[in-house]
Simulated scan of single mutants.
Amino acid sequence: MNKARSAITIISVILLIAWLFKIDYNDLSYKNNSTAYLGILIMILLIIFGVKQIAKNKK
C-alpha cells in the first residue's frame, strides 16, 4: 500500500508540472485557465495527502 501511495504522489508531481505548462500566461484570468487552475489545485492536494500518509506510516 505504501508503494501505491508513493507512486500516486510521484504521478501527481509529474501531472502538476504538466498542468503548469497548460496555463495561458498572457491572460491569467480564471475564465481562460479554470481547468488548469483546478488541475493544479487537485494535484497539490494529492501531493500533500500522499506525503502526510507516507510520513504517518513511517512512525
Rank of each mutant, 00 (worst) to 15 (best):
Y30E: 08
D24H: 06
K31I: 14
M43Q: 06
S29V: 07
S34M: 09
K56F: 13
L20C: 14
S12G: 07
I14N: 00
M43Y: 10
I48F: 07
I8R: 09
I48H: 01
D24F: 10
A55L: 11
T9H: 05
I42E: 00
L41I: 12
Y37G: 04
R5M: 08
K31V: 15
K22L: 15
A7Q: 04
A18N: 02
I47W: 00
I10T: 14
Y30M: 10
L16W: 07
Y30G: 01
G50R: 10
I44V: 15
K52E: 05
L38F: 06
I14Q: 00
Y25D: 00
K59N: 07
A36R: 02
A7M: 14
I17E: 00
R5T: 15
I17W: 00
G39H: 02
N32T: 14
I54F: 04
K56G: 05
S12I: 12
Y25G: 03
R5W: 13
I23P: 04
A18I: 12
N26R: 10
L16P: 01
L28W: 11
W19L: 03
W19M: 11
Y25S: 09
W19S: 08
I10H: 06
K58R: 15
G39Y: 02
I10R: 12
Y37M: 05
L16F: 15
D27G: 11
S12M: 01
T9E: 01
L46Y: 14
S29C: 08
L41E: 00
I23K: 10
A4Y: 11
K58V: 14
Y25N: 06
I47A: 09
L41A: 10
L41H: 01
S34G: 01
V13C: 15
Q53K: 13
V51T: 11
I40G: 03
I14E: 00
S6G: 08
S34R: 10
M1P: 06
I54N: 03
L38A: 06
K52F: 11
I47R: 09
I47D: 04
A4W: 10
Y37L: 06
L20D: 02
S29P: 05
A36M: 11
I17F: 02
N26F: 10
I54V: 12
V13T: 13
I11H: 04
M43H: 07
T35S: 12
I47H: 02
A55Q: 12
I42Y: 03
L15S: 08
S34D: 08
K22D: 04
I8G: 05
I8E: 12
K3L: 15
N26A: 08
I47N: 08
Y37R: 05
G50D: 03
I47S: 15
I14A: 08
G39V: 14
K56D: 05
Y37I: 05
T9C: 09
